[in-house]
Nucleic acid binder design. Structure first.
Lengths: 259, 259
DNA sequence: GTGTGTGAAACGTTTCACAGCT
DNA sequence: AGCTGTGAAACGTTTCACACAC
């Protein structure tokens, strides 16, 4: 044996599974909606339905945070909103820079749900000198030259890359060198970053290709149903129907720029 | 062990794991780049590096498609491009409608990597009558009233929702009723769809919240390193460094509209 | 009775390590 | 000698089912 390595650092109780972390924002959104409608409590069943997951998963997820529910009753909405927000680090302010103010960058800058959570657009950056000073979403665009200064002055630790693919790695290197440790990448490229820097990517074309795969399979299975005597349990398969891209292991969507 | 139960319906060779499917577009992108540079063959090691995964995973992934490599040599780039394209269903034409031509919708319409794969923007749809006829990315925007006709005439099976959250479910219902069976949702809402319809979601604010969680934890661990005598192997953790959001179970990013 | 919290089982994915082909 | 293809082990996630608290 001894194949396994470090087993687990076991920081104890701080070990929230990655899959759970990825769902917390979903729960938070559903809870916020309930809160706005002044609903005082929810059962795991109701909340799960609103978030698009099943109740067993939701309860297990919450169990990693602690015991915030009341047996026989459910969860206190306001309390849960607070606990999840705190767990996600949304009770503090996160200044964010967006680099690449093309169609997509502008769209991101205008995104409302941005400020509603703890995020604040600290600056919009573009390499085109012609863009400099032009306001987008009420914020003047600044030239790439200012990047390092802005990051240091505002203590920015999260950067969003919405540039063409060709510029992404270079922008990434500068962000990291200036102190950014989390990057959301919309450019269709693999970014190389040093250890300790987190990268998440969003890639439209990848999402479409995954849909195309399933679409093709649906068509193929239909056709097969005519020719072959449908094998025992064939078409069953767990279509991710209702739950949305529930299992999507990655989750990409390339920048919206003529790559 | 005999822990497993049903083993597998064994549709034989059609059982490509979801996680593998999600990575095929990544490999395809890396292979396309190699192809453009006229590289004839690659080893699993090289290709894996270019795609941002490890080579064992890549080989296992390819093994689900068949034995397309040559031992001692590697993979033929052109041949693999073809096989993966075929597997993903990209050798056929996929007409796509984009609903909601705000900032984000326009960005998507302008996205180049769209047409490069088998996707073709069949129509841009918006509810604002003032937008009708206005060309975006060279395609005239059409009013929502035309939606059903377009879907049926062009045989559209994939729809992209880039509307505000409030309109998303209604648009979704109309798309599905008209015959769409795959939906890419940018609106920050859970969509309810009937069995057999695939939904994938992309949600910016969720991605940012996941980054914030890790960012907060980094800060916390740093602080803890001072007080507590750093436990054995602490900071190690498999930071998704190089590989990007390698494990991201979901992969969301809300619509870029004032929700 | 009702609904949470959670061990234990089932399932899916990744990694290891090496046999086997070129 | 080199690199693929793949069983088997390790790991992570989801689901089940029920004890327990209200």
């Amino acid at each position: 044996m001894a194949t396994g390595r470090t087993h687990r650092p076991a920081t104890r109780s701080r070990g929230i599974p990655e899959a759970t972390v990825a769902r917390l924002p979903l729960y938070l959104r559903a809870l916020t909606a309930l809160s706005e409608r002044s609903v005082p409590t929810v059962s795991s069943e109701e909340l799960a339905a609103a978030a698009g997951v099943n109740s067993a998963k939701l309860r297990k997820d919450f169990s990693y945070l602690g015991s915030y529910g009341t047996r026989g009753v459910g969860y206190d909405v306001e309390y849960l909103v607070y606990q999840i927000s705190r767990e996600l680090g949304l009770t503090q302010d996160w200044p964010v820079v967006i680099v690449g103010i093309g169609n997509l960058g502008a769209a991101l800058a205008n995104y409302g749900g941005f400020a509603s959570r703890g995020f604040r657009v600290a600056a919009l950056i573009d390499a085109d000198p012609g863009m400099a000073g032009k306001p987008v979403a009420g914020i003047p665009v600044q030239h790439t030259d200012e990047l390092e200064k802005i990051i240091q002055d505002d203590g920015v630790s999260i950067g969003v890359i919405a540039t063409p693919a060709g510029a992404a790695q270079q922008v990434c290197d500068r962000l990291v060198a200036a102190g950014v440790t989390s990057i959301l990448n919309f450019a269709p490229t693999v970014l190389n970053v040093p250890e300790g820097v987190d990268v998440r990517k969003v890639d439209l074309s990848i999402e479409l290709q995954i849909l195309a795969f399933h679409e093709q399979r649906k068509a193929g299975e239909e056709a097969a149903a005519d020719t072959v005597a449908v094998p025992p349990v064939a078409a069953r398969k767990q279509q991710h129907s209702t739950g949305s891209a529930d299992k999507g292991p990655d989750g990409d969507v390339p920048a919206v720029m003529p790559a």
